[in-house]
Simulated assay, not measured.
Amino acid sequence: MYDVIGSRASRAFRVLWLLEEMGVGYNHMAVAPRSPEALAANPSGKIPALRDGDAVLTDSAAIMTYLADKHGQFTHAPGTVARARQDALTHQILDEIDGTLWTAARHSFVLPEEHRVPAVKDSLKWEYERNLARLSDALTGPFLQGETMTIADILLVHCLMWAGKAGFADPDDKLKDYMAMMVERPACQRAAALP
């Protein structure tokens, strides 16, 4: 059984949601970054971490890819064009959406105050809207890759949820409908109800 280390109010939510979708058992350690439990799993204290036997994996996208590949769910087979497109979407979301949100968070509350540049947030919000529009254009529905839900869908919807809480612009109607469909999934609801 897996141990998921990290509060659901973090990127650990992505991992928890995926495990709920897959119906795979896990123990959830709802801990904060740099807590003793987080530091024991990852010397940087960052969350999430996933313990699988003696192995400890870090980074939410890497964990999700590992789980999807291991269980053969919510992913396309490695070495296929569909998988290359899935990986491209995953990296696009990480680079253009998640990275923009994380930079804004760092300049809001993560970095020491003397290193924050609050004015950068205006350009990040502009960049986020531009990048999100490209993803909306690519959405073929009902999922990012048509009929197959992948880890990229969980990643994007978690970013959309995060953006809403961080005061970024609402997505367009197409992405709003997509997000509403995704967050109503029972697995997402179960993950959202965790401590």
Rank of each mutant, 00 (worst) to 15 (best):
K165Q: 07
L155V: 04
A138H: 12
C159G: 03
T148K: 14
V120Y: 04
H158W: 12
G164R: 08
G164N: 04
H158N: 14
V110G: 01
L144C: 11
L111Q: 01
M161C: 12
L155N: 14
L132S: 02
K125G: 05
A105W: 01
L156S: 10
L144V: 08
A163E: 09
G146C: 02
C159Q: 00
L144M: 15
R130G: 02
F143Y: 15
V157H: 02
L156V: 06
T150N: 11
H158Q: 14
H115S: 11
G141K: 07
A152N: 12
A133I: 00
M161G: 13
G146N: 05
A119W: 00
L135E: 04
V117Y: 00
Y128F: 06
E129K: 09
G141P: 00
M149Q: 15
L132A: 06
L111K: 10
L155G: 05
V157S: 04
M149D: 08
W126N: 02
G141D: 04
D137C: 05
G141M: 05
T148D: 14
Q145W: 04
H115P: 00
R116C: 09
D153I: 03
G141H: 06
L124T: 06
I154F: 09
W126V: 12
A119V: 07
V110N: 06
L135M: 03
F109G: 11
K121W: 00
W162C: 07
D137E: 15
I151G: 04
L139Q: 05
S123L: 08
R116L: 06
D122C: 01
A152L: 12
F143G: 02
L124K: 08
I151W: 06
W126H: 12
H158M: 08
A105G: 01
L156W: 10
E129F: 03
I154W: 05
L144I: 09
E129P: 00
L124E: 04
L135P: 02
P118R: 09
E113T: 09
L124M: 13
L111R: 08
T150K: 08
M149Y: 13
F143M: 04
L144W: 05
K125Q: 15
R134M: 13
A119R: 05
I151D: 07
V117G: 00
R106D: 11
H107V: 10
A166M: 15
W162T: 09
L132P: 04
F143Q: 02
D153Y: 01
L111P: 00
H115Y: 08
H115D: 11
M161E: 13
H115R: 14
A163F: 06
K125R: 15
D122L: 11
V110R: 08
A163I: 03
N131A: 15
C159A: 09
T150E: 12
R106I: 06
P142N: 06
E113C: 05
T140L: 06
E114T: 07
L156I: 10
A152F: 11
L155C: 08
V120T: 03
S108D: 12
K165W: 03
T148Q: 15
C159I: 02
Q145N: 13
H107G: 01
